[in-house]
Write a protein that binds this DNA or RNA. Sequence first.
DNA 1: ATCTATTTGTACGTATGTATT
DNA 2: AAATACATACGTACAAATAGA
Lengths: 254, 254
Amino acid sequence: MPPVTTRSNTEPRLSRPVQVAESIKDWVVAEGLKAGDRLPGEADLIVRFGMAKGTIREAMRILEAQGLIKTRTGPGGGSFVHEVSRERAKALLGNYFFFKNLTIGDIYQLRLTLEPELAASLAGNLPEDVLQLLERNIAQYSRPARDLEEERAQHVASLRFHAILAEQARNPLLGFVIDFMVKLLSDLTVYRRLYSPPNIELWQQGHDHQKALVKALRDGDADCARAIMTDHMETAWKLMRQQEVEVQNRFISE
Amino acid sequence: MPPVTTRSNTEPRLSRPVQVAESIKDWVVAEGLKAGDRLPGEADLIVRFGMAKGTIREAMRILEAQGLIKTRTGPGGGSFVHEVSRERAKALLGNYFFFKNLTIGDIYQLRLTLEPELAASLAGNLPEDVLQLLERNIAQYSRPARDLEEERAQHVASLRFHAILAEQARNPLLGFVIDFMVKLLSDLTVYRRLYSPPNIELWQQGHDHQKALVKALRDGDADCARAIMTDHMETAWKLMRQQEVEVQNRFISE
DNA sequence: ATCTATTTGTACGTATGTATT
DNA sequence: AAATACATACGTACAAATAGA
């Protein structure tokens, strides 16, 4: 089995905490530990690695930052293997794109192909309560917004529709990517400029698409769901392009 | 401007190092620091935050683990804002999928739609040296492998073809996702079972596809490039399905 | 090549906080 | 309520790395 840490020897040597963190990762996989399993305590690790408390603690912080462990105080406390949460994964990936400046078009290029794929795969596979959740979500923006603030709230809510679908994906990769794009679009806080009036017609179309989509999903009509979602993505993109938008990147936390 | 750290007050309180790390992130964006800019030194941070050395160091380790800073010792050293590298981002995201067990099919569902999209967008936009790089890459597996080891090497090399394309993407999101999937496939070390003989024919088809693709890319024929890539993905998937494969997840480092 | 100044890295002892029993 | 078992935080001292004189 190839070592987990494959590293060229020209790079600057790794700091000890990083080395320790890597060793612990290796140890966890070697030991076959799963989420929830307990790691050796601080004191234990100190003697095992023959290193100072601070070094061990820094190593744990590294693992924690990557979302791989959680730590609790008190008796029975300690560090525990933790399945990286989707939120954490999205946040970490968001930091990467913080420096690239993505355009709305970049995101929609992917949405345009992936969201219809997701919709098709979900047709006939959603439990009734999820379908109802989708319908309740749609109800939040059944009428055009009256002011800019409400418009923004509706926009975020309509994105949430897609996040709900993404959560239901059978394909974890597909679900994650779509969920992440929804997050990007939500974070890119959008301020519509005053001189570009809201396009009520397009907005209404988007709303109708979502209603029709829920029906297709309930009926199990995959082809129909795919077609509707394709239309929906196209109008959504058109809507975004028409509104002059101001994009604001930011770091993501926790 | 909304605070970066929006947090419900029911969750367990955040540890100080995490708080410090968040504060530093906020400070960096507020200050408008860019990659390469220097952060205050350890000693400085200790007095600014009124906290102990260890606490500050743990905070820095958190930021470092996320790929947001790099630290150097010596005069003129210190911590510097760092653009999260693609490698780091892929590794962090890989940890997330370590716990989900992705199937080859999951990955190909996305590749099947995204790779053709990328190919089309690159047609006519690649500099000659990249095209030659692609051709040299193809040459590595122009003949069928003679043993299992060589076969595996060829498989990884043929994946590299797609990584090269992904690097050239104008759309950073599209490029990243494809690159990440290539990484997943490379990491999923594949051992062909002995009783399933290599399908020389399909392999040859894949090779021919790549050659034809480079031609289409050079000629600037987007539609042709898209069509070839679609075919290529389909045969690649077929190839994967035919070979009984054993998948091995692992943590990813650095 | 050697020294020196600067800045991070490591070590360790002690005290405090926190949750379980 | 008290004892226990953990992590958390602090402060000092010293070691290592690196740039520049």
